[in-house]
Design a binder for these strands. Structure first.
Length: 496
RNA sequence: GCCGCCAUCGUCUAGCCCGGUCAGGACGCCAGGUUUUCAUCCUGGAAAUCAGGGGUUCGAAUCCCCUUGGCGGUACCA
C-alpha cells in the first residue's frame, strides 16, 4: 500500500518523439516528482520489423533536452547507451529469456497454450467472422490439441505462438484513476497472442511482465490501451500478481478532432524545436492539453517546477484535446520575452546561421555585440526563434528602396530634404558614448517638436529602407553612428 | 458489426463530486488607446439556449434515463 511510487515511460523506438508521447512522459515525470517517486525509462523494442537505427539515442536526447530527466533505465552517456538500475535490463529485446520463462509458467498452469495456426488461416477465419457480423476472435482450435499432438508439432519444429487463455466467465473491471470504474464482459475478450513466432513477446505480454518485475505502481498510458486492459488484468491474476493502478490519458487531436497525425502537420517534438519553439513553451503547452490546475486558477504560464507542484493525475480530463498552434505561438512568445539577452543570443545563433542574409553579411554584423543589439530590439516581436532577423534583414544587408517611400504624408521634396538634414545634424552631434536609444529619442524628439512624423518617418525609411520596422531610435542604436549617418547620406543622395 | 470511452465559447479550459451569482479565464478574432510605422503593452467587445430530448426538484451545466455525435479498440503494432 505504501510502496514507493514507480512509473515508467515505455516507448517503442520508432524514430522520433510524438507530441503525445511527450505529454505522456511529462505526466509520468510530474506524477513521479510530485510524489517522490522513481521514473523509469524502458525501451519496448519487441517489434523487430519496426526497428529504426538511432531511434533510442534520439529519443533519450529529446527527453533530456526537454528537461524530463528519468531516474532509472536507459540513458545516454557521452553518446553511448547505458543502463542503470536494479531492475534491468531495460531493453525488452534483452529480456527474451524472462518472457519465455513466464510464458512457460502460464502454459504449465493452463492460463496459456501453444497455437500452430498459420497467419493465413487466422486471416481467413477473421474474414468469415466479420462477414457473419461476429466479433473477430480466435476460435481456440489449438486449445483442444492433445499433449501428444503438441509435443509432436514442437518436435517437428513447426512455428508456433503462445496465446493467453482468457477466462470467459463473468466480467473484469478496474478502477482507472482518470476514468473511474471501467468494466468489460470477459466473454468478449480474445485469446490474445503473448509470444510471437519469432520468440519475441507482444507488447500485451511484455508490458505486464515488466511492470510487475520492475515494481511499477502506476501505469500511465494513452487511451488506446483501455480496451486491452482487462486482458492485462487477467494476466496479473493468472500469475497471482497485483496489478498496478491504471491511468489512461486522453488523446491529442487534429483540428478536425481525429487523432493527431503527421498528415495534418508536424507531430514530432524535434520538428517544433527546429522551428524555434522553446522547450519550456512546448512543455507548458502540452501540459495543458488535457489537464488544468482547476479551482479557479487562471495562471497560464507554468515552469516545470510549478507544474510539478500543481499537477494532479486525478484532474486529467477524459476527452481528447485539439492541438492548437495559435496558443503554442503565444506561449512561445511569452517565454522568449522572459529570456535574458544573453540567453536569447545563445539560443538564436543556430537560427541566424540558417539565414542567407545573415551568412552574407559583413563580419562586424556577426559580432556578439551587434547581434545582441538586434535581439534586444527583436525580443518583443518574436514568435519563435527561427524567425530571428527575418523581419529586419536591413540590420544585415545593404538597403535599397524607392525614393517615394521617404515622404511622410503630404511632405514636399524640400521639406523631406530638410528633415533628413535635420536628422543628420542631430545624430552627428551625439557622441558615440551617448549612443543609446534613450538619448537618441530625447535628442530626436527635441528636434522634431510636435511634428514627429515629419522627422521620424523619413529617418526610419532612410535607416531601414522599409515601411514597417522598429523605431528610428532603435534602428540607429543597432546600426551605430557611422552606419546611420552613411544611410542618411544615401537617402539624401536620392534627392539630387 | 461488436466492446469501451467521451461531450461547456472557433480552440484550451474553470465550474460538475457537495444542485441556487449576468456560465468565469486564456488563445484567436474585432474595436479603441499608447505611438512616426510594425510589434509589444493597456482597455473594451463579440463569442457556449453548457450536444439534443426527457425526467427529479421551488430551482440543473451540475443528479437520473434515453438519443445523437465524436473518438478509441477489435493485429504474430504499440
Amino acid at each position: 500500500m505504501n510502496k514507493k511510487i514507480r512509473v515508467r515511460f515505455a516507448p517503442s523506438p520508432t524514430g522520433f518523439v510524438h507530441m503525445g508521447s511527450l505529454r505522456t512522459t511529462l505526466y509520468d515525470y510530474l506524477f513521479a516528482r510530485k510524489n517522490g517517486g522513481t521514473f523509469v525509462l524502458r525501451v519496448e523494442d519487441t517489434d523487430q520489423k519496426r526497428f529504426v537505427p538511432g531511434a533510442v539515442e534520439n529519443l533519450i536526447h529529446t527527453l533530456e533536452h526537454a528537461g524530463l530527466k528519468h531516474d532509472e533505465g536507459v540513458f545516454l552517456e557521452e553518446g553511448k547507451i547505458v543502463q542503470k538500475g536494479e531492475y534491468g535490463p531495460y531493453f525488452q529485446s534483452e529480456r527474451l529469456a524472462i518472457y519465455k520463462k513466464y510464458a512457460q509458467q502460464l502454459i504449465d498452469n493452463s492460463s496459456a497454450y501453444y497455437c500452430f495456426c498459420s497467419q493465413e488461416n487466422l486471416e481467413a477465419m477473421r474474414e468469415v467472422q466479420i462477414a457473419n457480423k461476429q466479433a473477430p476472435m480466435y476460435d481456440r482450435t489449438c486449445l483442444h490439441l492433445s499433449a501428444e499432438e503438441i509435443a509432436e508439432k514442437l518436435e517437428s519444429g513447426a512455428p508456433y505462438v503462445i496465446r493467453q487463455k482468457i477466462n470467459l466467465e463473468g466480467f473484469t473491471e478496474f478502477e482507472d484513476i482518470i476514468r473511474g470504474k471501467v468494466r468489460f464482459e470477459n466473454s468478449l475478450l480474445d485469446d490474445q497472442i503473448i509470444m510471437k513466432s519469432d520468440g519475441f513477446p507482444t507488447y500485451n505480454f511484455a508490458n505486464v511482465i515488466d511492470d510487475h518485475l520492475m515494481e511499477i505502481t502506476h501505469a500511465i498510458r494513452g487511451e488506446e490501451f483501455v480496451s486491452s486492459t482487462p486482458k492485462y488484468i487477467q494476466l496479473y491474476q493468472a500469475f497471482g500478481w497485483t496489478a498496478p493502478q491504471f491511468a489512461h490519458l486522453p488523446l491529442l487531436l487534429n483540428s478536425d478532432k481525429s487523432k493527431l497525425s503527421k498528415r495534418q502537420g508536424d507531430v514530432a517534438v524535434e520538428d517544433y524545436i527546429k522551428k524555434g519553439y522553446l522547450k519550456e513553451a512546448i512543455i507548458n503547452f502540452v501540459a495543458f492539453l488535457g489537464w488544468n490546475p482547476g479551482e479557479g486558477n487562471t495562471q497560464e504560464v507554468f515552469s516545470l517546477e510549478e507544474l510539478v507542484q500543481a499537477f494532479d493525475l486525478a484532474k486529467v480530463h477524459k476527452a481528447g484535446a485539439v492541438f492548437d498552434l495559435k496558443k503554442l505561438d503565444w506561449l512561445n512568445a511569452q517565454y522568449i520575452k522572459k529570456l535574458s539577452v544573453d540567453e536569447l543570443y545563445q539560443k538564436s545563433l543556430e537560427f541566424f546561421a540558417q539565414k542567407d542574409f545573415f551568412m552574407a553579411a559583413t563580419n562586424e554584423k556577426k559580432t556578439e555585440a551587434y547581434l545582441k543589439k538586434v535581439l534586444t530590439i527583436e525580443q518583443d516581436r518574436l514568435v519563435n526563434l527561427s524567425e530571428v532577423g527575418e523581419n529586419n534583414p536591413f540590420f544585415f544587408t545593404e538597403i535599397d528602396y524607392a525614393k517615394e517611400m521617404l515622404f511622410w504624408k503630404k511632405m514636399t521634396e524640400v521639406e523631406l530634404q530638410q528633415s533628413l538634414e535635420n536628422s543628420k545634424a542631430v545624430l552627428a552631434n551625439i557622441e558615440e558614448s551617448d549612443w543609446t536609444t534613450q538619448n537618441l529619442e530625447e535628442k530626436l524628439f527635441a528636434a522634431a517638436g510636435d511634428k514627429k512624423g515629419d522627422l521620424l518617418w523619413p529617418l526610419r525609411v532612410a535607416l531601414s529602407g522599409a515601411q514597417k520596422s522598429p523605431s528610428p531610435m532603435e534602428l540607429a542604436w543597432v546600426l551605430g553612428k557611422d552606419a546611420s549617418l552613411h544611410r542618411l547620406d544615401l537617402a539624401l543622395a536620392k534627392l539630387k
